[in-house]
Design a protein around this nucleic acid. Structure first.
Lengths: 167, 167
DNA sequence: TCCAAACCCTTGGATGTCCTAGTATATTGC
DNA sequence: GCAATATACTAGGACATCCAAGGGTTTGGA
């Protein structure tokens, strides 16, 4: 998928929108499309860094979440809510992490419906290493200027709140 | 995946990062994570609007690209480059669009390796309708303030250029 | 001219996401 | 107390994305 294009395809699309009389939504269209593409680029970088650890981003996120849980354990429904993904996605991730010996499922002490996900010591160690790698190889060189990072956090936080992610 | 959380999980993660001595990368981490989540929200809205048309976002993007191609046809490798996705993803999308009668594959006049994707009249009509729906139901109500849209376009364009998307 | 290298598309496999049930356990209300 | 409703997790299926590999077509250098 490799060589750079001679022109920005998203800017072209924006011009196309304007040329078709949709100028009022051309800019939001371009912004939304740019977010899609940026996410794709960032995900690619993250996956590349995690690959040597045998992790994908989905599994890493779960591992990281558990590692910050103090007790090292969380109910699956809680993890689903915090990661904002479908419960079946968590089931899928836990299956694989458990097969890799990084987490274990255990029964909830009082609620028989609930399953706890618990970090193993291997899981905790791996989470730490993977986080260090992401910090130095992705986040420390994100490609965003410092003040742009602040802008992004502000803009996207407002968007997410408005979209009903949190109160 | 429903009720709003009482707190912003990304802001919490940022605080966690700072608390662990990773303050220098906490903000980029939060920005990157927010982009991931924002993309997920936007994709969900888009897919919901496209569903009645029997389209997914991937298929719509290809359809829209073809509809702007004047001749209504593009080589698959060109589509792959412009959409910035793996060639196999285009193969997949074309398979389904062709099965739905929205595009047809045809031979390239001079290069036997290349396959052209061509819009059918049904495909062109559907692309028009779907675009109108996206414009009014997603882009016209993106949830971003106008000046934030400009900021996003500026910031993400610089990022994509820096990432090698275009020159 | 001719064969190796480059290029194009497709197939097959691994992952992840969501949706739609289906099973099991809790909670609520009468 | 017991039935109806709600909640939690999982199984199966549809899609999309990427990678690796394979077969056909062009191009280019010896």
């Amino acid at each position: 998928m490799g060589t750079p294009l001679p022109r920005d395809p998203i800017a072209d699309a924006q011009r196309n929108w304007e040329g078709h009389g949709w100028g009022n939504v051309a800019a939001p269209m371009a912004a939304v499309t740019a977010i899609m593409r940026t996410q794709q680029i960032l995900l690619g970088r993250i996956e590349a860094v995690l690959k040597p650890f045998g992790l994908t981003f989905a599994r890493y996120e779960l591992l990281a979440l558990l590692s910050f849980a103090r007790s090292g354990a969380l109910p699956m429904n809680k993890a689903s809510a915090l990661l904002q993904v479908h419960p079946t996605s968590v089931t899928n991730a836990v299956d694989r992490l458990q097969a890799a010996g990084l987490v274990v499922r255990s029964a909830h002490p009082t609620d028989g419906r609930t399953t706890l996900i618990e970090l193993t010591s291997e899981g905790r160690t791996l989470a730490k290493s993977a986080t260090a790698a992401l910090n130095s190889e992705v986040f420390a060189q994100s490609g965003f200027a410092d003040h742009d990072v602040d802008q992004l956090i502000r803009i996207l936080s407002a968007f997410r709140k408005n979209a009903g992610d949190f109160t």
